[in-house]
Write a protein that binds this DNA or RNA. Structure first.
Lengths: 191, 191
DNA sequence: GCAATTCTATACTTATAAGTACAGAATAAC
DNA sequence: GTTATTCTGTACTTATAAGTATAGAATTGC
């Protein structure tokens, strides 16, 4: 019943994501986020809690974005093979060239030994579990499209590994053609 | 001509590696390294320079260890396929279970946005380049052992991607059987 | 044994960054 | 318009950690 918040929390999360993604959790100071967003620290603390809580919100948002997209792409009609190819190739802009340098926020966080917070680990685990579930479900459903002996569960995990590898190596700014070639070769396992 | 150093620098690098590997560069304070090693800060600074320089030494050592092992394994006589399978399976203890939690020091460092130091990037790039070179050289040499149309260069890179993915996902402590299954499936690309 | 030199330990300085107190500004309800 | 309430901005406190000054200990060469 009094003065309303002067900013949209979602806008701030978006800005915080950019800063955290670029520099990592530890190396990002709240002062940098206040500078980038124009929101003073007390307002940030009031809206989101401490730095860890803010980062968790950012990471969850990031996860939700990718999961939403994955759901759409993997629910596509047509051959499972094509859906998964499209899913993998969709990451190319994010794991090659200039833009790929920052890698994947989730993997960057998972490989950061200092982020040993239970809440963060859970968020990341849940994300990976759900992604793999989406892949597995689709591969199981379309199992008939593959050769005899095809194992949808292992294949789903292998696709996850390839995805993680591409995002981890993204920091070396590989060429998008090279990434594409790897994806095409891996598609050979989906036969 | 005067008092000699009372510690073996190599021992300290070994201890520093453990600490850095567990907690990451940023989150590790020099006080933790002095506590773990028993060496006081001024001695560390005299021997290695500042924290970044110490970490670079640790990382280079780590890289050299893995490269040396990779050279031995990949130079093995017999089919290239087996040499590479052995190389990949050799990582299983380091990317599954309890011990796998810390992941790979090199990848952890590469995905740490705060370590934007040119020297570190170079060390990591050189490491990846040399590893891939070892794989590529072996695959090219034994090219005749594979199906027509086999591309050793792309395959070498794909193996690097799989390796990076396994080490990145190691933080979720996967089961070693699952890792093994992925490797076996990927071996299907080496035919 | 003595001197020169280099290492080591304590204790300090300094910088950075997380989190907060407090005063003042803005808004909704009446 | 007034008042109660909540937000915002400045400035502060506090903690942590990197890097260093300085004094004292240890070792080699003579």
């Amino acid at each position: 019943m009094a003065r309303p918040r002067s900013f949209d929390p979602d806008d701030v999360l978006e800005i915080a994501r950019q800063v955290f993604w670029q520099k990592g959790f530890q190396a990002t100071s709240l002062d940098e986020i206040t500078a980038a967003s124009g929101i003073a620290k007390p307002s940030l603390y009031a809206a989101f809690g401490d730095k860890h809580a803010l980062f968790l919100r950012v990471l969850d948002r990031y996860h939700d974005g990718i999961l939403g997209w994955a759901e759409r792409v993997l629910a596509q009609p047509g051959p499972a093979r094509e859906a998964i190819r499209q899913w993998l190739t969709g990451f190319i802009p994010y794991c090659s060239g200039e833009k790929g340098q920052r890698g994947c926020l989730s993997i960057n966080s998972a490989t950061d030994g200092s982020l040993d917070q239970a809440a963060l680990r859970k968020s990341i685990e849940r994300y990976n579990r759900r992604l793999e579930e989406l892949l597995r479900t689709r591969l199981r459903a379309d199992r008939a499209q593959f050769k005899k002996g095809f194992d949808p569960d292992i294949t789903a995990h292998t696709v996850m590994v390839v995805h993680a590898g591409l995002m981890a190596l993204a920091h070396q700014t590989p060429d998008s053609k090279q990434v594409k070639a790897v994806i095409e070769q891996v598609m050979g396992l989906l036969a």
